[in-house]
Design a protein around this nucleic acid. Structure first.
Length: 414
DNA sequence: GTAGGGTTAG
């Protein structure tokens, strides 16, 4: 559904309600779902208010849907307070509620808080299921804690849960990221022995690892073989290969794959557009990158944070810092949310030009994880009226972001 | 009509 269409749906529904036609719960839930998919969180929250104003109790689907939208955007606090709301209406959180919350918590707040939620879940008699375990395996893998991930898997089997494709793909990805391709292939064998067929996710994980190892020919041939055997290649498969070829300066092959993908009728999403735009920038083919950016816009797709970061990075790389900041500021005005990557891109650009005396000291503190000391020095210098290089702000923000502290837009645009 | 796996930017 397009944004315009959903607006229309909302309009008509509100009109119907206004003329006394009552809407049922499903109608509201579909509206909540559509709003979340478009990341219209305010509108999604309004659905609950609307339901309550019409003496209708939102159900578990309403809440779970909205909570997923909130967690995706990092609004964990709001999600938790929604959990309290639902409980007070006697809509009891279920496995889906907790799994959503736990995964969001791992992503935005870190594992300590996430595990508290796992305990809370158990305490309330909601039993962790395969999905809960898969979430834990995923985050242990991301944190490089192989043993802990393995322990969760053992525990899973012991408690009677069978491993599914998600579990295997998570572990295969974990092994690939840890540089252990051999173990990843062993997992694929094990999948087969257990009667689980590897899928496009498995394939893409392996293709990505091969590309990272510069084994482009092997990666490509694997996809050809897989396609012949009936596996579906999707935009991620192509995107992965395209990046691989760009990074190894085989621009023509990358562009050929882009065409091949489109010939197959695969419609690239914004992420895949980002890969081609980034690749073309990397190959100094800025004009062609702009063409692809325009194509993205023509298709009615919205550029995202990564698109902005890619463009800012390209300006910085060319040494066009003014353009980079001009673009950055314009985008911030247009609701672009800079993240730690934006900070690093600009920092790297600025470091090439600025006076690094104090910034180096603060950077050192940050590198050592001594954010308190870094902040103290920063404040002292500020009080003394020492004008600090912009990069210092970015480095500090980087540190603060890494500690998962929230950061205000105001302090970023200083 | 709700939760978990794979691609991009430093």
């Amino acid at each position: 559904m397009h944004k315009g269409q959903l607006s229309k749906v909302r309009e008509v529904l509100l009109e119907m309600k206004g003329s006394g036609i009552s809407l049922n719960r499903n109608t509201y839930n579909i509206l909540a779902h559509g709003s979340c998919k478009l990341r219209w969180l305010k509108e999604a929250a309004e659905v609950v208010e609307l339901m309550r104003a019409n003496d209708m109790v939102p159900d578990i689907w309403t809440y779970n849907t909205i909570m997923t939208g909130l967690c995706d955007k990092g609004k964990v606090k709001e999600t938790i307070s929604l959990r309290d709301d639902m409980e007070s209406l006697r809509v009891m959180p279920d496995e889906v509620t907790y799994n959503t919350l736990i995964d969001g918590c791992f992503q935005w707040w870190g594992s300590v808080e996430a595990f508290k939620l796992v305990e809370e879940m158990k305490g309330k008699g909601v039993k962790p299921n395969t999905v809960t375990h898969n979430i834990m395996v995923k985050w242990y893998c991301k944190e490089g804690k192989k043993d802990e991930a393995g322990y969760v898997v053992v525990k899973m089997v012991e408690t009677g849960f069978s491993l599914d494709c998600f579990t295997y793909n998570t572990m295969i990805n974990g092994y690939c990221k840890a540089g252990n391709l051999g173990e990843a292939f062993k997992m694929i064998d094990e999948m087969g022995r257990k009667g689980l067929k590897m899928d496009t996710f498995t394939l893409n994980t392996i293709v990505h690892k091969l590309c990272m190892e510069k084994l482009l020919k092997e990666a490509y041939e694997l996809t050809v073989k897989a396609a012949k055997r009936g596996y579906i290649l999707d935009e991620v498969t192509y995107g992965t290969l395209i990046i691989g070829y760009f990074k190894n300066d085989q621009t023509n092959k990358a562009l050929k794959l882009w065409d091949e993908m489109k010939e197959k009728g695969i419609i690239p999403s914004v992420v895949t557009y980002n890969t081609i735009i980034g690749g073309l920038c990397h190959s100094l083919k800025t004009d062609q990158a702009v063409d692809k950016l325009n194509e993205l816009l023509d298709k009615g797709l919205a550029p995202d944070e990564a698109t902005c970061n890619i463009i800012i990075n390209d300006f910085c790389w060319e040494g066009a810092l003014e353009k980079a900041f001009l673009f950055y500021n314009r985008m911030v005005e247009n609701s672009f949310k800079p993240d730690v990557i934006t900070c690093n891109i600009l920092l790297r650009g600025l470091c090439k030009h600025g006076d690094m005396d104090y910034s180096e000291q603060i950077t050192n503190f940050c590198t050592q994880g001594k954010y308190k000391e870094a902040m103290k020095l920063f404040q002292e210098l500020e009080q003394k009226g020492v004008s600090l290089h912009k990069s210092v702000y970015f480095k500090l923000m980087d540190g603060l972001l890494k500690r998962r502290k929230s950061i205000s837009k105001a302090s970023l645009s200083d």
